[in-house]
Structures are given as structure tokens and as C-alpha cells.
């Protein structure tokens, strides 16, 4: 059994608060988008809760960025270009074929790199691409009365609304895939437990030690 401490307390706190806010924003966002009825939250309440959760998500995201700039956790988001495409293909092939043939994981978690190339790419895209855009469009929504009448010849509020909606759908998609992919660790709950305890534990001692030594 190898054990690597990969998820410091601040990161785990951010992650679970962020996860909770994601769920709240999805539910209240759907309540606002589709209107009241059935299992949806009353509209007025949904608006207030969604706005509050959105503001907290913004603060959380700023905390995440600052945390990654000031601690060693940021290194996991730095792309190593050498062999990048090859690693991407290998990881993709594993998820598409190898995983059904009980092939060994092509990537081994280490202190130096806890994400495989596909994970790294998707987290980078989400945290530094989709999230800031979602947050920006959300704030534009909050202050929609201050927006110009038109942007690029189209009603600006509508543009903001469509951007926010598209980004929201993409992030729901990410959440689904993320929740599934974390079950593809050594066991179904290996990655989940790591995000709860901070310790990534694997049965095969050689893998972790080897990668740790490399880093």
C-alpha cells in the first residue's frame, strides 16, 4: 500500500464547497430557466439563492486561483509539452478500449503529477476557461441594467443569457463526466476517498514510489 498526500486541506475545502455550490446553482438555475412547477424551487427564492451561490462561487474560484499560484498544487496544472500528444492518445485509448480488457492504468499518480493528461486538459479547460467565462456572464446578468442595449448588433442581455446558458450546460456535462471518471481509479472509490482524506492510497506500492522517486 502506497499513500501520497496530494490534496491539502484548503484544496479539499474548496473542492467540496465548490461541488455544493455547483449543485445549488444547477437546481436554482433550472428553476429560474424553466419557471416554477413540480420539483423546481419557487422563482423568487431561486433567484436570490442562485445569485448568492454565484457570488460565493466567484469568491471560491478566486481562492482556487490564488491557492494554485501560491502553493505547490499549481504544478499539477502545468502542461509538459514533451510527449503530450502521445500521452493523450494512450490515455484516450485506455478509456476507450484498455479499460474493458483489464489492462493496467497507463498513468500512475505521483507527487509530481496527480492528473493524467486527459484529466489535466479537462480541469485546465474548466477551471481557467469555462469557469471564468461562466462567472463573467453571471455578473453581467446581475448588472444587466448597466449593459449597453446591443452588442455586435444583437441585444446584449440576450447574448449574455445565451453565453451563460451554454456555459452552464457545458459545466453540467463536465460534472457528469467528472463524477464518472473519478470511479476509474484503482478501485471505484480510490479517487473519492483521496479527495475526502487528502491521501491517495494504492495497493501497488511500486507505482507510487516509482513516480514519487521520479518527481
Amino acid at each position: 500500500m502506497s499513500a501520497l498526500y496530494l490534496y491539502p486541506r484548503w484544496l479539499r475545502a474548496w473542492h467540496w464547497i465548490n461541488a455544493l455550490l455547483f449543485l445549488v446553482l444547477m437546481y436554482t438555475g433550472a428553476s429560474m430557466h424553466f419557471g416554477e412547477g413540480g420539483w423546481l424551487m419557487p422563482f423568487d427564492l431561486a433567484v436570490t439563492v442562485h445569485n448568492t451561490a454565484g457570488i460565493l462561487l466567484t469568491l471560491g474560484w478566486i481562492g482556487f486561483v490564488v491557492g494554485n499560484l501560491t502553493t505547490e498544487n499549481g504544478r499539477h496544472y502545468r502542461i509538459h509539452l514533451s510527449g503530450f500528444v502521445d500521452r493523450l492518445i494512450v490515455q484516450g485509448r485506455y478509456y476507450a478500449q484498455g479499460i474493458f480488457r483489464n489492462e493496467p492504468h497507463p498513468f500512475h499518480v505521483s507527487v509530481g503529477m496527480k492528473f493524467n493528461t486527459l484529466q489535466q486538459l479537462s480541469y485546465l479547460g474548466v477551471m481557467f476557461g469555462l469557469m471564468p467565462l461562466l462567472i463573467l456572464s453571471g455578473w453581467a446578468f446581475l448588472f444587466s441594467v448597466s449593459l449597453p442595449e446591443t452588442l455586435l448588433g444583437l441585444p446584449s442581455v440576450w447574448l449574455v443569457a445565451m453565453a451563460h446558458l451554454t456555459l452552464a450546460y457545458l459545466l453540467v456535462l463536465f460534472l457528469l463526466v467528472h463524477m464518472y471518471i473519478i470511479t476509474t481509479g484503482e478501485t471505484v472509490t480510490t479517487n473519492l476517498r483521496a479527495m475526502i482524506t487528502g491521501w491517495h492510497r494504492e495497493d501497488d506500492p511500486s507505482s507510487g514510489q516509482t513516480e514519487e522517486a521520479k518527481s
Binding site: 429560474m32 445569485n51 446581475l142 451563460h164
Partner: peptide
């Protein structure tokens, strides 16, 4: 901040797009 939280400007349907 108060106006952002208690924003009243969102109208149901503003973000609706059948295609999206």
C-alpha cells in the same frame, strides 16, 4: 452586493432558447 443578490431584473424566459 445587496443589489446583486436581490436582483429583480431576471425575467423568466430571458435565457430560453429552444435550440440551445
Amino acid at each position: 452586493l445587496s443589489k446583486a443578490v436581490f436582483n429583480e431584473a431576471y425575467v423568466v424566459g430571458m435565457s430560453r432558447s429552444p435550440l440551445l
